[in-house]
């Protein structure tokens, strides 16, 4: 077969691959937003409300990719969790669409959707009184229903509310999250 024909076959093959369309022109973009520093939850104040506007809190990594956003492929809550109380506690994160303002843990767990957690923090004096969350371990703690709400909101106006919630029926815990962040990987077309 002549060289010209071979190039035509090679070109046909390339066209077939390119015909698969937008799967070629996509990217996984790392983005994050900060939690209040610190987040403080204890028995008397067992939650913290964090209104999120991705356009403002994440910035251009979100705004530049919003119209092409297909999925959020990876999620994690990162930070250093310290318990100064004498009782072990745990932290969970809930999400609601839009801007909500629930004022009790009961309202949050009834009306919100679990997004992440729980993660347990030991009492003061124990080896795990301070835990810096591992990125891999954190990614495994995401709840698919909460993640779907986050994806839907990210594809919409980018505004939602997350709540960090402490431990029910544990009067002795006192947890602070310092340098807390929510990290997400946006799967977007280019």
């Amino acid at each position: 077969m002549k060289l010209k024909t071979r190039w035509m076959v090679a070109g046909l093959a390339l066209v077939a691959v390119l015909a698969s369309g937008c799967i070629i022109t996509s990217a996984q973009v790392l983005a994050h937003f900060d939690l209040p520093n610190p987040v403080h939850i204890d028995a008397s104040d067992d939650h913290e409300r964090v209104p999120v506007d991705l356009a403002e809190d994440v910035g251009s990594d979100y705004s530049d990719n919003k119209d092409k956003l297909e999925d959020v492929t990876d999620l994690a809550v990162l930070g250093t969790f310290t318990n100064t109380g004498n009782e072990a506690g745990q932290v969970t994160v809930y999400i609601t669409p839009g801007n909500t303002n629930y004022t009790t843990a009961g309202e949050i767990t009834s009306n919100g959707t679990l997004l992440w957690g729980p993660t347990a923090i030991g009492p003061a004096g124990s080896p795990d009184e301070t835990v810096t969350i591992d990125w891999d371990a954190s990614a495994a703690l995401f709840n698919s229903a909460g993640k779907q709400i986050l994806i839907d909101e990210a594809k919409g106006d980018g505004q939602f509310t997350i709540y960090t919630v402490g431990t029910a029926n544990a009067p002795g815990y006192d947890i602070q999250i310092t340098d807390g962040k929510v990290v997400l990987v946006l799967d977007a077309g280019l």
Partner: peptide
Amino acid sequence: VMIKTGDTSQK
């Protein structure tokens, strides 16, 4: 290499 993931891919 393009591994299809829904409407996008990992490359």
